[in-house]
Simulated scan of single mutants.
Amino acid sequence: MIAALAFYIFAAILIASAVMVVTSRNPVHSVLFLILAFFNAAALFLMAGAEFLAMILVIVYVGAVAVLFLFIVMMLDIDFVQLRQGFQRYAPVGAVIGAILFLELLFVFGAWQFAPDAAALRVNAIPADPSLTNTEALGLLVYTEYVYLFQVAGLILLVAMIGAIVLTLRDKPANSKRQDIATQVARGEAVVLTQVPSRAGLSTLGITRRKLPEQPKPRQVAHHGGHGHEHENGGHH
């Protein structure tokens, strides 16, 4: 009873936070709701017996990915008013695509049904070797039977990362300073080291301090009162 109640509570919070991620106007609030969704999904994985996936959600997604999103959103100066200017122009195209996706979901859920042996399956599957933990069994399965698919997924993520870097890379202006490593390494002039006597100062090398300009003297300001003139240097009324 307690497990079922906890499942419904975590699932409800997960769905609500996922909806708030999409509907929030402030992007910072969207990232914070995303972190809340990750925590609730980790709790559901933990209840299902997949403690490895739960820890991955907390450590990798919450501790790295979501925090990175939060820093990027807070550091970038994005003009959201300008981004929303073309919303009405592309609204019909977005509505058509949304309708197509909704129809596809209807077809999927309409043809979906439980497998005959689904009721007999346990949520927390026991590995073939009782001495192995759930994490060890998952590692053996991923890196033996599905090792090629795992490598293909890594290559796809690598291509996506390189594509994002290429799309966001902008040419720097001509007057920007760039580092020339070849010029720095191959120096044309030799550096001459001069031994300066102790407590001799920089004057022995011909380095003198520039004299500061003299400060202008303050002027006397006369204040006009109701009955006379008041001077700053002890004048009379």
Rank of each mutant, 00 (worst) to 15 (best):
S24G: 03
G49T: 00
A18M: 14
K177Q: 08
F71E: 06
Q82T: 10
L155S: 05
Q184K: 11
H237I: 13
H236M: 00
I72F: 12
G234Y: 02
E51F: 12
M47N: 02
G110M: 03
G139D: 05
S176C: 10
N124K: 15
V19S: 15
I126V: 14
F33E: 00
L5G: 05
A182H: 10
A99R: 04
A91P: 06
V96H: 00
A119L: 15
I9F: 09
G225H: 04
I35P: 00
P197M: 01
M47I: 11
G201A: 06
R122E: 07
N175V: 07
E214F: 02
V191L: 15
G98S: 12
L32W: 00
I162R: 05
G49K: 01
L34F: 08
A137I: 03
G110P: 02
Y8E: 10
I97G: 04
A50Y: 01
L167R: 12
G235D: 09
I156D: 04
K217Y: 04
P218W: 01
I15Q: 12
V62H: 03
D77R: 15
I9L: 10
I72C: 09
V81S: 13
I72S: 12
A222R: 13
D180V: 09
L57I: 01
D171C: 00
Q113H: 11
G228Q: 05
N124A: 15
P197K: 04
G163Q: 14
Q113S: 15
G94L: 13
A119E: 12
F102P: 00
A186M: 14
G235E: 10
W112S: 14
A153T: 11
M161H: 01
H29W: 14
L155K: 03
A54D: 00
S30V: 02
I59W: 04
M75G: 04
L14S: 09
N175S: 09
H236D: 05
S203E: 13
D171M: 11
F150D: 06
H29E: 12
L46G: 11
V65D: 00
L138I: 11
Y90E: 05
T23S: 08
S176W: 09
L212P: 05
S24L: 01
L140Y: 06
K172R: 13
R25D: 08
Q113N: 11
L70M: 09
L205Y: 02
A174I: 14
P27E: 03
G228C: 01
Q88A: 14
H237R: 15
Q220F: 06
A64W: 12
L158I: 14
Q215V: 11
V166P: 07
F102R: 04
T204I: 15
I78C: 07
L193Y: 08
E145N: 06
A4H: 05
E136I: 05
H231V: 01
L83Y: 06
I126M: 14
P216V: 03
P213A: 11
I15S: 08
Q215P: 07
K172V: 09
T144S: 08
R210G: 09
